[in-house]
Nucleic acid binder design. Structure first.
Length: 426
RNA sequence: GGAGAGGUGGCUGAGUGGCUGAAAGCGCUCCCCUGCUAAGGGAGUAUGGGCUGAUACCCCAUCGAGGGUUCGAAUCCCUCCCUCUCCGCCA
């Protein structure tokens, strides 16, 4: 949620900023509604003040055995006026709130201009895409050949965009997860959390998935609960209605969870293999930091995610998302894109964002700058560290050999139970 | 799922219609006293909003959430949520 004070102070600037996203904000209309709210609120509050004073005097008069009939008549009249004013105020408030909750975050000035992924700005590359002296297979060909991936049974029991991993492929999938968790907890200072996979609507509103992106979510029991689309939701909501001491910042959490996405609107997109599934695993990093620290925290967070790709020896690039491609709640986002030989393209494997105070305002996550000062919103950030399914795909495709086997990166050894190559005939 | 008990400030906990945004204690901050330590004395200590140059004053709201009764609700009534105890079921 945007800071209402910023909106009131300079609605024009807000409109200009949001236009870079392709979002239209009617500043004049907003200013008008805001003026109405102000008037209605002042009137309602002064009526309440009068009522409170009179009621108090009635009490005092009664206690001294005096007659209070006249004052009571007066206050009854006040009550009716008050009711009208309050009803008016409530309806204006409701309209303003609905408006505010549907507005995306302001873009950081550094965000490149543009309308789609074509316009994203490449910041750097790491590693060289492998030049195979044979035609590389894609991850489906590799793993189905070994009998370790069963898309057919997954489709039979659940439908499209589900998968069944077996044997050493499932082991590799688990090893990747463990590796990521240990790397980030031991070397990057994140605290591991186990969190609910079902959350309520308020939590999703807090992080920005609702109300606008309902179609991307799976709902249960009449929308009492939703399956989480990312661990960002439960992790960030740990800070709801919380005031942290300055000494508790930076606040760094990590969780490994399944993620569920309806993938509405992506029909025909990435239909093959494990790239785009309704259910996938992800290791998610979430931070809450001092507002002055959030820019540097985004750089650091991105480096933490990159560390996973580097350890796995996977070539990738970092792109800064343009105004038209960046998410609703983010002020700035870096995507990590891993090289996929089968597609001869870089594909998203992690997304690291600075939300500044946008989510913090929605969930009332604050910190106390120092004793005496009143609390103010923290800045939140999150990033995938990484999407496990896509990492599995990248490992298979980048580390394959001509015989269809795959070399397992050394860093996974502690979890691979002695397996160093996949797809080797026993 | 059934029965019962509860949800009050950073914490414990009083408070059954007005003088309670809230006693008392603990914690915390500042000051005084004190060779050190310990003990003692005093003051302060919620959040959001409005107003404002102001994180000063003043005003409004908030005692789980929402609604109702009343001139007036932490206190009475209704609905919902959550916690605890016992029973049932269960990994």
């Amino acid at each position: 949620m945007l800071d209402p004070k910023v909106l009131r102070a300079d609605p024009r600037a807000v409109a200009d900023n949001l236009a870079r996203r392709g979002f239209t904000f009617d500043a004049a209309m907003y200013a008008e509604l805001e003026a109405e709210r102000k008037a209605a609120q002042s009137e309602a509050e002064s009526l309440q003040a009068q009522r409170n004073t009179l009621s108090k005097r009635i009490g005092e008069a009664r206690q001294q055995g005096e007659d209070a009939t006249e004052m009571m008549a007066e206050v009854t009249g006040l009550g009716e006026q008050l009711e009208h004013r309050q009803a008016a105020l409530a309806s204006i408030r409701q309209r303003l709130d609905a408006w505010l909750i549907g507005m995306p975050n302001l873009l950081d000035p550094e965000v490149p201009d543009g309308k789609d992924p074509q316009d994203n700005l490449e910041l750097r590359r790491w590693g060289e895409p492998v030049e195979f002296d044979f035609e590389p297979l894609d991850h489906v060909q590799l793993s189905e050949h070994w009998g370790l991936l069963d898309m057919r049974q997954a489709a039979a029991m659940s439908g499209a965009r589900f998968s069944v991993l077996q044997g050493e492929l499932a082991l590799l999938h688990r090893a990747l997860t463990q590796f990521m968790l240990d790397l980030h907890t031991r070397q990057h200072g994140y605290e591991e959390c186990y969190v609910p996979y079902l959350v309520n609507a308020a939590s999703l509103e807090g992080t920005g998935q609702l109300p606008k992106f309902r179609a991307d979510l799976f709902a249960l029991d009449g929308e009492q609960h939703f399956l989480i689309p990312t661990a960002e939701v439960p992790l960030t909501n740990l800070l709801r209605d919380t005031i942290l001491e300055a000494s508790e910042l930076p606040w760094k959490k990590i969780a490994h969870t399944p993620c569920f996405r309806a993938e509405a609107g992506s029909y025909g997109m990435d239909t093959r293999g494990l790239i785009r599934q309704h259910q996938f695993e992800k290791v998610e990093l979430v931070l809450a930091v001092h507002p002055e620290e959030s820019e540097s925290a985004l750089e650091e967070l991105t480096i933490h995610a990159e560390a996973v790709l580097q350890a796995l020896e996977l070539p990738y690039r970092v792109v800064s998302l343009c105004g038209g491609d960046i998410g609703f709640a983010a002020a700035r986002t870096y995507d990590l894109e891993v090289w996929l030989p089968s597609q001869k393209a870089y594909r998203e494997i992690s997304s690291c964002s600075n939300f500044r105070d946008f989510q913090a305002r929605r969930i009332k996550a604050r910190f106390r700058p120092d004793q005496e000062k009143s609390p103010q919103p923290v800045h939140t950030l999150n990033g995938s560290g990484l999407a496990v399914g896509r990492t599995l795909v990248a490992v298979l495709e980048n580390h394959q050999s001509e015989d269809g086997s795959v070399q397992i990166p050394d860093c996974l050894a502690p979890w691979m139970n002695g397996v160093t190559r996949l797809g080797v005939a026993e």
